[in-house]
Amino acid sequence: MSVIIWIAEGTWPACVAAAREHAAEGAELVLLHVTDDAVAEAAHGAFAGLLGRGHRERDPGTRLEGLARAATDDLFEEAERRLGRPARRLDLRGRPEQQVVRAAEGAELLICARDGERAHLGPRSLGPATRFVVDHAPCPVLLVWPDAAPAIGSLPPPPPPPPPPGRPGP
C-alpha cells in the first residue's frame, strides 16, 4: 500500500509536511504531480490555426511543454528534499482531478491541500479540482491547510431554518 502525496503548485509544502508527520515509517511514498495540458494544447491549436502548419520550431505549445516539464522536475526535487525519505515520482498529464482519483486507486492514503479561499473556514476553501478529488477518492483522504487554518470565528453562519409546514417562505 502507498501514500499518495499530491504536489500542486502553491500548496505542496503542506502536503509534504503532512506526509512526514502522518505516513508510517515503512509506507511507500508517492509524489504525484499532474500537468494540465490544456494551455499547451491551446497554444498548439492557435499556432496551427492562425499561422499554418509549417515551422514547428516556432510552435509556442512546444515551448510551454518544455517549461512545464522543467518546472515539474524542480518541484519533484524540492519536494523530495523536504520529505527527507525515498519517494517514487508519478508525473501524469491530463485533467488533474481525474488523474489524482485514478492514481489513488489502491492507495492507503491520499494527502492533498485546500486550494481555495484561505481566509475563512468553509466549503469555499476547496477549489473545484480538490472538491472533486475529496468527493471521489477511492481511499482515505488527509486534507490539510496550506497555511495556518483560519480562526474558528471565520466559520460561516448556519443557513436560516426552513419555514414551518404550510407557511410560504420569504
Rank of each mutant, 00 (worst) to 15 (best):
M1S: 13
M1N: 08
A8Q: 15
G10Q: 04
W12M: 10
A14S: 09
A18E: 01
A18T: 07
R20V: 03
H22C: 11
E25Q: 13
E25F: 02
G26K: 13
G26C: 05
A27K: 06
E28Q: 11
E28N: 08
L29W: 08
V30T: 01
V30I: 14
V30A: 00
L31M: 01
L31S: 04
H33F: 01
D37G: 14
A38M: 09
V39P: 01
A40F: 10
E41M: 11
A42H: 09
A43I: 10
G45L: 12
A46G: 13
F47Q: 13
A48Q: 08
G49V: 04
L50D: 11
G52Q: 00
G52D: 04
G52L: 03
G54K: 11
G54C: 05
G54I: 05
H55D: 15
E57K: 06
R63M: 11
R63W: 09
L64R: 13
E65G: 07
L67N: 11
L67G: 11
L67E: 15
L67H: 14
R69P: 02
A71T: 14
A71V: 11
T72L: 04
T72I: 10
L75T: 14
F76H: 10
E77G: 14
E77I: 12
E78L: 14
E78R: 15
A79S: 01
A79M: 03
R81D: 11
L83G: 11
L83K: 00
P86S: 15
A87I: 06
R89H: 11
L90P: 06
D91I: 10
R93V: 15
E97F: 08
Q98D: 14
Q98M: 11
V101C: 09
A103D: 10
A103L: 07
A104C: 05
A107T: 06
A107L: 10
A107G: 00
E108V: 03
E108W: 05
L110Y: 11
L110I: 12
A113T: 06
A113E: 12
A113D: 00
A113S: 10
R114K: 14
R114N: 06
D115C: 00
D115S: 08
D115A: 10
G116I: 04
G116R: 03
G116A: 01
E117D: 15
R118W: 02
A119P: 05
L121P: 06
G122S: 08
G122T: 12
P123Y: 10
S125F: 05
L126W: 01
L126H: 05
A129I: 00
V133S: 07
V133K: 09
V134E: 05
V134R: 02
D135C: 03
P138K: 02
P140G: 02
V141Q: 02
V141G: 00
L142F: 04
L143Q: 01
W145H: 13
A149L: 06
P150Y: 00
A151T: 05
G153I: 09
S154W: 07
L155Y: 08
P156V: 08
P156Q: 04
P158M: 13
P159D: 03
P159I: 01
P159Y: 03
P161I: 07
P164H: 04
G166F: 07
G166A: 12
G169I: 12
G169E: 15
P170V: 13
P170A: 11
